[in-house]
Amino acid sequence: MTTASSDASSTLPSGRAKKAPRVDGIRFRAGAILLRILLLVAVVAAWQIAVSTGAVNSLTLPTPWQALKAMSQVRDGEFWKDLSNTGLVVLAAFGIGGAAGLAAGIAFWRLPALGDAVEPFLVTLYATPTLVFYPVLIVLLGLNLWPLILIASVMVFMPIALNTMIGLRSLSPVLPRLARSLGSPGPVAFRKILLPGALPIVISGARVAFLYATMGTIAMEMVVASAGLGYRIGYDYSNFRTQEMYGLVLVVAVLATGLNWILTRVEKSMRRDLA
């Protein structure tokens, strides 16, 4: 990822004067992987020791091996139903929040005063536990999935609106003039000239937004839902199904990591095409 460059004039802090710089490349990458493995080993070892020595009650914390086994048993339960429930909410939120975010981002770009006015509220929104509005939304929307979808949409809305605005602002101001000189009317000009230019930054925002939606949805499900991955974890907890819970927690962690990895690859390839 990082290019190897021997900056010969870079110097070490006190101590020995620096000789010729290190060899980079293979040894460097191997070193990085080694450090990661060391971290993993350290974490698992600490975990195992905590359970074995009884520092932690083995009823509340299974051994790494037991947790691993529980992971494989996860698909025997209602896993797929839960997964599809969560996925539904996330996708719906992404669609709604994304559309709203794009529109808002464009509005904030066109009307800078509006963007400035809204900024402190958006900043606050980041720090507000939007879940507290759940009771209000139940009253307004009913006891179904819509309150969850709406709250998750807000989590999607913010990074997309912000990135759209920033992406559009980063464009050279000559582009709208170009559009006019080519005689293209507003929406067409926007689509063909401005939006592609802003798209790379928007795509980064979209990845973050999708992740936030996922994290937020699972968190909310733990508290209020009756279905979904988060709900299942809460359910296992309340019913003392420790093994199943740990298995599910690990599976969700792995899935989230995998999702992030996929989204990052998609983002990188899309940005490369557009750049």
């Binding site: 937020g216 988060g230 974890i233 990591t257 999702l259």
Partner: peptide
């Protein structure tokens, strides 16, 4: 990658 994992699931 860890950033994507919802930390609340570790609350239990």
């Amino acid at each position: 990658s860890l950033f994507a994992v919802p930390r609340i699931i570790f609350y239990p």
